[in-house]
Amino acid sequence: MVKIILLICLMFFLLQSDAFEQNCVKCHVNEFQFSMFMRKYTLKYSSQRAIKEAVYRYLKNPQYEKSVLPYGYLKRFGIKKKSLLSDEELEKMIDVYYEKYNMKDRIY
């Protein structure tokens, strides 16, 4: 029974990861960018709740003033387009992103 549950969880995570690959990694290409974004978000927003809310707000309506990236970076790459994902999908993607790149779990 436990094995079945674990298997289901793993499959769910893999499916979510696949969605994350599709929706996020496709454009941002490398992990460095994700890590850097997370460092910037963490530096500004601190807690998990505040970081997720800030990422959500930005992805729903990307604006220069909402971005955590430096001015030079934004000038060069601009801001992203508004996300077309549903709220539910977006929240799931943010959860996966936080799960994979949060700094808290990597402190030892």
């Binding site: 927003y45 807690s47 990597r106 402190i107 030892y108």
Partner: peptide
């Protein structure tokens, strides 16, 4: 990819988030 938390002999510390 990982962050080594700074430790000291003469004092100990903890960090908390905004929540």
């Amino acid at each position: 990819f990982t962050y080594k938390y700074p430790r000291y002999e003469n004092f100990k510390s903890a960090i908390y988030d905004s929540d």
